[in-house]
Design a protein around this nucleic acid. Structure first.
Lengths: 146, 146
DNA sequence: CTAATGTCTCTAGCAACTATAGCTTCAAGG
DNA sequence: CCTTGAAGCTATAGTTGCTAGAGACATTAG
């Protein structure tokens, strides 16, 4: 049985984050010691590891909630989990494409900056006028972190 | 003089967002009509276009605030604007690198999923055990949108 | 036994909006 | 002139995924 601190250390997750996960129902309510401190067993540890890993891969907590409820029913079909992962992959691919375009545009902007005064600064100028852009980088889909 | 709706349409920004920008001081307080409705001129329109464009390129509102205050003093050096753009470029590059690793891992996960039952689902298995991963995709730096 | 660290709950804050409620104003049609 | 519907107003609360702080209690090392 691990205290919340040890658990966090083991999984690489901060203590308040664990409490937060418990609060929103991603982790089950932990047992308590005589002094009301959380005590976590193996299962919670594995569950937290999965959460952490999926977060690292950019899954939302909602997607993780689904994945966890799937992993709780090992007899069912894998298709749903597969679909969630594929959706995440598509998400990542589209962000990747978008970021690649942004990078190109930012590079153009930075390279063209001759270092004069603001009045003829390419950075400000390009930002002010999208038609100076080479690529169309306008927010095509929803913005999600990471 | 444009109403807030026309302004938003012109810039591709939703009406509440414009009000939000005004509220946090990114846009100046608009003049008002007799009936208390906002009326915006050219200057606000250009300013909003710059904000929108910079947001599309992933700049934070804080960075945009700096860029705007620079563009308000056209006689000053361009160096600060250049620095902001370069920082943004570095940010984008690092996110790009991370996303590339994530993509590889997700692809591996999805490809290996044979479509059986959850019990032998690669997706769940890999998520449960980071050591099954090929790359080290653990959250290296802060997560920022877009 | 004491001091330091760890844990507890609760509340509030971050970015960058978005949504809702309940009201007023405006523009067009009859 | 009047009505109707869209668009505007303010203010507040919600979103995601945490993080930070206050103030009190628990545990552990010396």
């Amino acid at each position: 049985m691990l205290t919340i601190g040890k658990l966090g250390e083991a999984a690489g997750v901060k203590v308040p984050t664990i409490r937060y996960y418990e609060q929103i129902g991603l982790l089950p309510e932990a047992e308590r010691s005589a002094g009301n401190q959380r005590l976590n067993g193996h299962k919670a540890q594995e569950r937290l590891a999965l959460i952490r890993h999926a977060r690292d891969l950019g899954f939302t907590l909602e997607a993780i909630r689904d994945l966890l409820s799937l992993s709780d029913r090992p007899d069912q079909s894998c298709a749903a989990a597969d679909a969630i992962a594929k959706a995440q992959l598509a998400e990542v691919e589209s962000r990747l494409a978008r970021l690649t375009a942004l990078k190109a545009e930012l590079e153009r902007m930075v390279v063209q900056c001759a270092g004069g005064s603001i009045a003829d600064c390419r950075v400000i100028e390009v930002l002010s006028d999208h038609s100076l852009c080479a690529t169309d980088h306008r927010h095509p889909e929803s913005e999600v972190p990471s």
